[in-house]
Amino acid sequence: MKNIFYILIGTFFGIVLFKSEAASWFRIYEMFNFDSFHMYGIIGSAVFLGLIGTQVIKRKKIKSIQGQPIHIPDKNKSFYRYAIGGIIFGLGWALAGACPGPMYVLAGAGFFPIFIVIAGALAGTWIYGLLKDKLPH
């Protein structure tokens, strides 16, 4: 039952990503050219509502479906890892036209060259694991 629940959430999210065109290379290119409000509207409205909802969850101490307090861990304080890692991510996001969520969407949609991108992402993740201790964080 639980397994089906998670698959269904993912299916819903995947449909939203495809139908919003957030999974389209063209929309990412358009966003970085400031040619349309579309992507800014998607991210902006998601963050705006996410912010309100997350603060309500925290202030009202809303419990999860299992009856546990919802605990959202804070990110570790640092600058370099977020700035450098973020810029590297952004370079790839614009080149491949896809961040991780849309990569899975496009695999399902049948754009097979996306598997080259996914192979690259797995390799990049692995390389990070190998170099982690040598990088400034």
Binding site: N76, R81, I84, G85, I88, G92, A96, C99, G120, I127
Partner: peptide, 13 residues
Amino acid sequence: GGLLVGFGSRYAG
């Protein structure tokens, strides 16, 4: 492109 996304997302957490 994928390599940069994979490496960058883990580096940035």
